[in-house]
């Protein structure tokens, strides 16, 4: 997608509008009063330390957790709709067509007893594909796009390395051409060279497919590479947000300054 097309898309309306999203666990808060807009083609990074509420926020956005207050308005094909109020069949349909969720641990997002081809094909079959040959061709194509050799199509993910499992999970999620991808620490648990390749791949796919993405991570290098915009969370609240380079190079909030200065410089 060219820069111009992206600008045109961005000119329409936000893909996702989040308003005052709050989730409490009893008396404690998971996340509180989170509001932001996500525009088509934009990648938003959410950073913060462990327990700052980033994963809770992501689960609320993706419909895995029911928030206590607030709205998550998604621009569906038939106009903007609040996914919190949406009935479950509709939300689940969204989550296997327009949305995708990449888990930190590929074991959570893959079916370990099913071959790589079956894993990629599941979403296709879930939306009605019934031609084996066509499903297999698409699966082969997608394995190629995430740099997995086509000869591994009939192997189970348990025979794959960690990095391959993560790439397979990404292929499985992107095969139906979603518009919004939620990623929870997509590079967690991978060694640095595999991380770098995965980030390269993700960046390529996001640009090529014009995806919007929300990436939760504690790794500032990941957001520096991938994210257009950044949100910094602490104790369940957003303490700072802005363009990625701006936030990382000129942090305003004390916590962000701490976070940025905590990164080891090699």
């Amino acid at each position: 997608m060219t820069q111009m097309q992206r600008t045109v898309l961005a000119a329409e309306a936000p893909l996702l509008q989040v308003r005052d999203l709050t989730k409490r666990y009893g008396a404690r808060i998971g996340c509180a009063d989170v509001s932001f807009d996500l525009w088509p083609g934009e990648v938003l990074g959410i950073v913060g330390e462990s327990g700052s509420g980033k994963s809770t926020l992501l689960s609320c956005l993706a419909g895995h957790l029911a928030p206590d207050e607030g709205q998550v308005i998604f621009a569906t094909a038939s106009g903007p709709k609040d996914t919190v109020q949406m009935d479950e069949p509709e939300r689940r349909r969204l989550s296997r067509t327009d949305w995708a969720f990449v888990h930190q641990n590929p074991r959570d997002g893959l079916r370990m007893g099913v071959t790589a081809g079956g894993n990629v094909g599941e979403r296709l079959m879930a939306v009605g594909a019934r031609h084996y040959g066509a499903i297999r061709d698409t699966a082969t194509d997608w394995l190629g796009r995430v740099e997995i050799d086509a000869s591994r199509i009939d192997d189970r993910p348990s025979a794959f390395s960690g990095g391959m499992q993560q790439r397979l999970q990404i292929a499985r999620n992107l095969v139906t051409g979603p518009r919004l991808v939620f990623m929870d620490e997509p590079t967690g648990g991978l060694d640095v060279s595999v991380q770098a390749r995965l980030l390269d791949l993700l960046r390529g796919l996001v640009r090529e497919m014009g995806l919007s993405a929300i990436i939760v991570t504690h790794d500032l290098a990941v957001v520096r590479l991938l994210a257009d915009r950044l949100m910094v969370m602490k104790s369940g609240r957003v303490v700072e947000q802005g363009l990625t380079d701006q936030v990382l190079d000129d942090p305003q909030h004390a916590y962000t300054q701490l976070l940025v200065s905590s990164v080891l410089q090699v």
């Binding site: 079916r111 094909g121 019934r130 084996y132």
Partner: peptide, 14 residues
């Protein structure tokens, strides 16, 4: 949501 049933048949053919 019966896509999973076809995954089983897919695996058979694969």
């Amino acid at each position: 949501e019966y896509g999973l049933m076809h995954v089983k048949l897919y695996e058979d053919i694969a």
